[in-house]
Amino acid sequence: MITEEERAARSQRARDAAVAAATELGLDASGATVLYDVFSVVVDLAPSPVVARVPVVTPRGTTSAGFQRTELDVSRWMASRGEPTVVPSGLVPAEPVERDGFAMTFWEKVEGVVPTAYDAVKRMPAVARLHSILAGYPGETGFFPGMQGYVDLAFDDLDGREDLLPAADLARARAEWAVLSPLVTSPSAFARAFPGVPVQVVHGDAPSYNLIETADAVLYSDYEHVGVAPVEWDLAHTGEEAISAYDAAAADLGLRTVDTEVLRVVERLRDLQAVACLAMVPQLPLLVDGLASTLETWRATEPLTGLTGGDPRPTTPAER
């Protein structure tokens, strides 16, 4: 398990690598500071109006470069359409840069960010609009990106780690994954299970969270996990009121409304994704607290035994 001192040292190495890479690209980063440090270290390369994003914690079996190229391509495409979005810095090439063992990307700094309380319901119209835009994205993306390979490897890493996940929980997670994993292998596999439910390019990583607000605009951001999936993948666990708000906005835009059975299934997939994230706790101990509520809710649901088996709603002993 990484110590706090080791985590701070990793953050410093990422910052130093970003500064060195930026300097080599001709930027003045003499006042660089770390803005954020969780899965990525985000560095304000002051006085240059550029922010570097440096992934430091990634699931085993995945690499940053492919995700980073997709993120850069999608953001540039969004900007070319005049959509409100965070964009790659125009002061350096829009491509991943490797330095001192880190792969990083450089972004235009957003000035005047307004701190706002998260409200999924109020943000659903923006999510529906994003779906209407991404449906036309012409680039190549994966299907349910980040799910193939990662979950199986994570469950293998959790085997025998009772300090991270009890064996009974791991056995349940593996059983549920055996039921659901075929759905994320290809669009055709999904279509066989849910005929008539279309898939499209979606954000992939909770777009209602990944909005940056200023006094003048609300910007879309964080396209690392963009890929083809049902729109419900972006809506999992947002709550009934938020789903109703999404449906209303989708109808106004001529989009389909949420399929409740697909939502039920992708919410369980998101639960299993959270369970798999426990394998990264040795690299990122704060995940223990961050995932606690999700895992508690998952444990309170009936185990999923089939696409129509097992009620995903939390139950009490009296209800069972």
Rank of each mutant, 00 (worst) to 15 (best):
A167L: 04
V226P: 00
T214G: 07
V113I: 14
V110A: 10
D156P: 00
V114C: 04
A120D: 13
L134N: 11
R129G: 00
G90N: 03
T141L: 12
A229N: 12
D119E: 14
A171F: 00
A167R: 15
A229F: 02
V226M: 06
G142N: 05
V151E: 05
P138E: 14
S186P: 01
S188W: 00
H131R: 10
D205G: 02
S89A: 14
A178P: 00
P138G: 11
S186D: 12
D156H: 11
L211S: 03
R161A: 07
P166L: 06
V92P: 00
Y209S: 06
T116S: 06
G112K: 12
P182N: 07
R192H: 08
P115W: 05
E108L: 05
E140W: 00
A94E: 12
G112P: 04
Y223V: 01
P138H: 10
F190A: 10
V228M: 13
A103D: 11
R192N: 05
G149R: 15
W177C: 06
T141W: 02
V114Y: 00
R172G: 06
V199K: 08
Y118D: 10
G196L: 10
G142C: 02
V179M: 05
A171D: 13
A173D: 08
P125D: 12
A191F: 00
E224S: 11
A171S: 09
L158K: 07
I212E: 03
Y118N: 03
S132R: 15
F143C: 06
H225I: 01
R161C: 05
P182T: 03
A193L: 07
P182W: 03
S181T: 04
A217T: 13
P88G: 13
F194T: 09
V121W: 11
A117E: 15
H131S: 07
D169I: 00
F143Q: 08
E140G: 04
F102D: 09
E162F: 01
L158D: 04
V202A: 09
E95S: 14
V184F: 05
E162N: 07
S188D: 15
A193Y: 02
R174T: 04
E111K: 05
S181I: 02
L164W: 04
S186M: 08
V127S: 06
L134H: 07
S221H: 03
L91N: 02
P93M: 10
G204I: 10
A128T: 07
A135S: 10
V151N: 05
L130S: 06
T141S: 11
G90I: 01
A229K: 12
P96I: 12
V202F: 01
F144D: 01
F190P: 08
Q148V: 06
K109G: 01
R172W: 00
G101N: 12
S132C: 06
V226L: 10
F144A: 07
L134W: 03
H203W: 02
L165T: 02
L130D: 10
D205R: 13
K109V: 03
L165V: 06
D163W: 09
W107F: 09
G146F: 07
G139P: 09
S89Y: 04
V179L: 05
A126I: 01
T105N: 04
A167G: 13
A154S: 15
